[in-house]
Amino acid sequence: MRSWLAIAFLLVSAGGSSAAIDAVNIYEPRKFGYFIGDILERRVEVITSGDTQLFTAALPRPGPLTYWLDLVSIKHTEREASGRRIYDITLKYQIFYSALEAKRLDIPAFPLRFINPGSAAPDARAPGEPDASSQLGNYTASVPALGLVISPLREIAVDNLMPDKTIEISDIMRPDAVAQEISTAPKVQLLALSAAVLAVSGILLLSHYAVWPFARRAKRPFTQAERQIRKRQFAASGEAPYGDLLLILHRAFDQSAGRRVFAADVPEFIARHERFAGLSPKLKSFFESSQLYFFSGDRRLAEDRFPSSELTRLAGDLAREERAAA
């Protein structure tokens, strides 16, 4: 469909200089069948050799060219092939002519400027200065005008000009194309996925804060301590090391209070956990003998004052009170 037109300028330098514009090939689109809004593309291929280069800064700039035509874009690339320099220029035009009848209009021609077309730089002469430099072997090339036939979109039916018209505009106008239905399936899937992520995060959050379904049973340090002490004594057949037993019970106190409990803290501990108030004298003697055991080195005295059996009984009492309160 796209016809191409090659205009070859075989330009031989008069002075035999190696610099030359070898060819300007123009690939044109079709020349007819255009409507308002159409975009057409022209491709220009410029081949130079030697020192000659296309002066790309002088190519037309995108923007309105005439009242009916815009140059939408112009792109150019440069490549080397077999010692020649090849410029590919792509010009994109858009037509804004609202034709009442089929009409031919011309895309204006534009010149191409070169650096060292012969041996002189293009800025060596003022633009528009005629042939002052022609003796220097200065050649030029240009992209010629392109004539286009632009057609109206529909039949023109003007009431006063065509009194005997037989068709209405509505008969001519065609309905708009039915809108294409956009598929919502991906969005629905994404929504479902998000909902699933939200649910999982919610569950994780509940578990993090230990809210209802994940609320664990209140810890019972004394119950666990009692179990541990009994296990130890059973394993050691009643002769478990006294210090270990003390430590187990100490850790239970610490866990129950949320901090380290020393002998001096016993009144405060009882004030906070009133259910142990009845055991207060026993707690006191437990802490006293623990002090003796750990800090005075008088271990025998500690064990005499508060023997293992007493300690086991105290752990049992504490555990019982703990369970009773829970």
Binding site: R260, F262, A263, A264, Q291, F295, S296, G297
Partner: peptide
């Protein structure tokens, strides 16, 4: 007392 206990340090 004739011994140092943790309370003293605290």
């Amino acid at each position: 007392r004739d011994m140092v206990v943790p309370e003293d340090i605290r």
